[in-house]
Computed example of a mutant assay.
Amino acid sequence: MPVINMLEAKTRLSQLVAAVEDGSESEIIIARNGKPAARLVPIVEEKRGVRLGLAEGLYPPMTLEEFDADNDLIREMFEAEKDFS
């Protein structure tokens, strides 16, 4: 983890960023008047996506018709007037 002073960091910024990007340096500390002021590190991209099969085997298999069988009942429950008195 090299420590680079501010003036040198300003003149070599592209090289420093490239070193962090390609992994030749895991981080670079930038110092102001000999005191660490900032850390230059690579941005780690989060892997996003859909995790398929997460609930596999937890529920019995069913057809679309079976899955939708209670739709009318559920609709009635949501549309029912409620007496909050």
Rank of each mutant, 00 (worst) to 15 (best):
E8A: 11
R51I: 14
G34I: 08
P42A: 09
M1D: 12
P42L: 10
E8T: 15
I74R: 04
K10C: 12
A37V: 12
F67T: 05
M77S: 05
L13H: 00
I74P: 03
R12M: 09
V17M: 06
E81M: 12
R12C: 04
M1Q: 08
V41P: 01
R75E: 04
E56L: 05
E27P: 00
A18Q: 10
F67Y: 15
N71C: 04
E66S: 14
F78I: 11
E27S: 05
P36F: 03
E66D: 10
T11W: 01
A19S: 13
V50D: 04
A69T: 08
L52W: 15
E21F: 07
K10G: 13
D72Q: 14
L16D: 01
I29D: 04
V44K: 00
L73W: 11
A38C: 08
S24I: 07
P42E: 13
D70Y: 02
G23Q: 06
S14E: 06
E21D: 11
V20N: 11
K47W: 04
Y59F: 13
L13E: 00
K35Y: 13
I29A: 01
S24P: 00
K47H: 06
E66Q: 15
P36L: 02
L52E: 07
A80W: 09
N5G: 01
E81S: 15
T63Y: 03
A80Q: 06
V17E: 01
N33R: 08
L13N: 06
A80F: 12
L16R: 02
A69L: 08
N71W: 09
D72A: 08
N33L: 12
D83F: 01
R75W: 09
P36C: 03
L73P: 07
R48Y: 10
P60T: 14
M62E: 11
N33Y: 03
L52F: 13
A31K: 03
D22G: 02
E27C: 08
R48A: 10
V20R: 02
E25K: 04
E66W: 02
I28L: 01
Y59L: 02
A31W: 00
M1H: 11
L54N: 12
Q15R: 14
I74Y: 11
G53T: 02
L58F: 12
P60R: 10
V17Q: 08
T11A: 11
N5M: 05
T63W: 00
I4P: 03
K47I: 10
L73Q: 13
R51Q: 05
R39E: 04
E81N: 09
M6T: 10
Y59K: 09
P36R: 08
A55H: 10
A37Q: 12
L58S: 03
G49A: 10
G49C: 06
R12G: 09
L13R: 10
L52D: 10
V20P: 03
L58D: 04
E21N: 14
F84H: 13
V20Y: 02
R12W: 01
I28C: 00
V20L: 03
P42D: 06
E45H: 10
E56F: 03
I4E: 03
P61A: 02
E25Y: 06
D70T: 14
